[in-house]
Design a protein around this nucleic acid. Structure first.
Lengths: 208, 208, 208, 208
DNA sequence: AATGAATGAGGATTCATTCAT
DNA sequence: AATGAATGAATCCTCATTCAT
């Protein structure tokens, strides 16, 4: 005679559990960084025992790497790139920057954790740091593509320079916002930055 | 036969010990951040037992705060501001930026640790984070003074904006250098940034 | 050749482990008090590593509180109250007192630790002290019930007074026994005390 | 040329320092017991460095023993025994008890710490425990003398019994007061106890 | 798919004590 | 008479991880 298990948690559901773990971990890692994110704290926050976390993730490093990936996706989803028809190229750039700024205000965890990982120089590099560099490189390439489209005359080293400068400004402004709080109008600063970079591109010599 | 006492440390010297501890801690904290800086590792690096560290510093928080302060001073000392006679204002700005870039390459610990602390949002704020914000504000004020001198027509909100943008660019470029290594020519990027901010200031409307 | 795993503990058994920890802790805490009961010593005595103790108890405070509870229960179980048919009320009181005295000689840990905790006035009250007060109040209520049954004419303040005096005498005699050892015949003293309190009750004015 | 030392603490004064240390230690030990009284806390409370405490006392054990002695003297000084002319013997006994009760309310540290030490059974007996037993024995002898004077017909074992019972009641009532606070009227309870013991003595058979 | 229990290593911090000055 | 500095051992507790079920 087969009895239905009466009291089993809601029918064990791996996907849902994984999601809960990641959600908890994103929040904590975004606040406290790699070392500050202990399995015990994540366990407490998501309600699953520590050993269950190890069922879903090989080890802490693996978890943090997954956190970076997930928070990157969450962030990407928050970036709604503007339609291509909207105004002059400059205006479109500015709108894009504003949009990115808004997404960083709404979902800052990805960049915050990523920058923390990026700044650390620990003996054995965490996988999460590698993942961050990878997704960042993806972002760089996309941005480079935009630059090449708008300024086809620029050579590769100029594109490279512009992208580096653009990303650096974004990171730095984000840090300002994180440090000084709402006093910093991230959207306005990103718009200013976009205009500046655009002007810089226009002023650059064409060709190789 | 009288044995020389084998290990009795040379006459107790508080100032020197404190210096040794800080020196070790700066290096470690600059690499591994707040949580990654364990007292045991600092103890091993400086050669004093952990309990001696607690003679000189109330707790880990106090130590890290002192680390921030000391590394800031070290860094400041490394910034050799250019003489006032050297060329046009723009040239002097560019030289100053290059100098700061060089100091960040030589003594990156201060800013690296500071940014790590700045990005953390832990429930109870570490004292080191507070100190970082304070010394940063000092730096901001100095920069604001330079801007006011060069562009007396600008109103305060414009000065504020310029300073924020200038610092953000510096931070962001530093992060690029930390992430991507020597591939990033920090001095050149800082010079470019200085020129850009200078141009931005010139283009700003005067008056309140 | 298959070696038996040398030390892998017999199948994990939480209930049994908890019991072992408590058993060790009762003994140690009963001898050395709160501060004298180090987790390391308990760990050594029960054979489980310190970290396992923290699986079963939130912290030391929690452990000591559980110790109080458990030793109270052990002690209660050792008190075999006399049948209700045995002789005059006075005789039954005396028999009860003798029984309690015997239980305190056999299982003194509860009261010894409890009194130590009760006497401490530390800034943050240990949970064990709270628990001790609670179980003691239970004991007081039981005793009050006995008094009310035997002397229905007494008003509440008289009952209260009698109970306080009775318990105080018990505690004080216990302390004598702990201080001066077997020279003190605890059973005889408790019997004397019972007779005294009984007489005191008889001599009290009835009514409110 | 002899310069007056300008800034030396008030002219080093051993007696005064010793007093300050003991005063701090009495309070702390009375609150937290033997183990809870750390040299560092005493040092913080009295304002002298820990090493100075070791100039005045051989070690912690020595300090605690001195604490017991000093708090005993303080307490004794607070006990103002009543003149011999005041009323009947019973009345004088009651007055004496009331006086002791008052002294215990005013200066409870001695008995509180003493009882804590008495209850502990640590492997190596602290000197303070020995001192407590000694001063207690002195108190017992005094009380025995009083009993012998008032009831010359009693034999030694009866005296012994009465003293034990009297002291036990006092200790127990003190514990009640410590546990339950001002709700317990220590003076009234001590008076009741005195009357009870007096009555007990009267009821005892004379002779050997 | 999940988890209760366990565990050794290491975390920060405090301990009583010593010693040169 | 006093103290700044130092120190090894011990404190409580958390860590990441494993494993039998």
């Amino acid at each position: 005679m087969t009895r239905a298990r009466p009291d089993r948690k809601q029918r064990a559901n791996g996907v849902e559990s994984r999601r809960r773990i990641l959600e908890a971990a994103v929040e904590i890692a975004g606040e406290r960084g790699y070392e500050g994110t202990s399995i015990a704290v994540v366990s407490a926050k998501c309600g699953l025992p520590a050993s269950s976390i190890y069922w879903h993730f090989k080890d802490k490093d693996d978890l943090i790497a997954a956190v970076i990936e997930r928070s990157f996706e969450t962030w990407l989803a928050a970036v709604v790139l503007p339609g291509e028809d909207a105004g002059t190229p400059l205006e479109r750039c500015v709108a894009m920057a504003a949009d990115i700024a808004r997404s960083l205000v709404d979902a800052p965890d990805f960049l915050r954790l990523g920058l923390m990982l990026a700044l650390e120089h620990r003996p054995v590099e965490p996988q999460g740091r590698v993942v961050f560099r990878e997704v960042r490189e993806v972002a760089r390439q996309r941005l480079a593509e935009v630059v090449r489209t708008l300024f086809p005359a620029l050579d590769e080293s100029a594109v490279h320079l512009l992208v580096t400068y653009a990303v650096a400004g974004g990171d730095g402004l984000f840090v300002q916002r994180e440090t000084r709080g709402e006093e910093v109008d991230l959207v306005a600063m990103f718009e200013l930055h976009a205009r500046t970079v655009y002007g810089m591109a226009e002023g650059m010599p064409a060709g190789g």
